[in-house]
Amino acid sequence: MTSLVTDTRVVFSRELRPVLRDPFTVIFSMIQPLFFLGLFAPLLPDSPDGGSPLQWFVPGIIVMSCLFGSSMTGSNLLYEMQTGSHERMLVTPLRRPALLIGRALKEIVPMIAQAALIVAVCIPFGFELHLAGALLGLVILAGFCIGLGALSYTLALASKNKEWMFWTVQQTLLFPLLLLAGVLLPIENGPGWLQALSRINPMTYVVDAERALFNGEVLARGTLEGLVAAVLVGLLGLAAGVRAMRRSD
């Protein structure tokens, strides 16, 4: 007999297969983060202690790449809803939660590949990798991207027959989340209202945690806050996504 775990594994490996067959697709969704890395990072001033500004900038770009990739992933489901393969899967005995969880879990794989690629590109330019912290950073980021992916699928399910709605909502939310998390410029010197908005953006805590962890500060207070924020986004996304999937026809 199958279980939720087996079902999830079936969905997960099905989703992953096109990525493994054509690894180049991993790069498509990270083109914008790579532009920021190449065209924006050189404008950053050296940090006060004389270190490379990349130590501050790169962890944020890794989170950005995860944000861009995971938030777009619902478009795959949207497409499968149009072609009929989603409907075909709804008639199989696969459990509804597995249809969502398996898809959301798959987001971890391109996220890790993208993070590894960004780090590899930046090391020759003076980026210093602290492996243990970075690995823990990826664990936190995994929770965050599962949640984002699940929310993107939720949006896709809600946008049935209204593809424009998916892209409008996704594009509208993308940059506010990014800027308010202080990925490109620090928020600390901004006006109070901007700082207040930044504090209610869960991505802020994830970015702060990644900055600490990628610089080897494993025991920073920000690590715990980032973990909590990522887990909350993960759980919220899965809850919303499973609910939407149960209602899908």
Binding site: R17, R21, G84, R88, P93
Partner: peptide, 28 residues
């Protein structure tokens, strides 16, 4: 039951054989 809908059951970015195997796995 088996169901063949109006659309295409196989994902367009997938390979046919992979989809058939996934489908079999979906039925346990």
């Amino acid at each position: 039951i088996g169901y063949i809908g109006q659309g295409n059951g196989a994902g367009h970015s997938q390979r046919g054989r992979d989809e058939l195997i996934s489908q079999g796995r979906a039925y346990g």
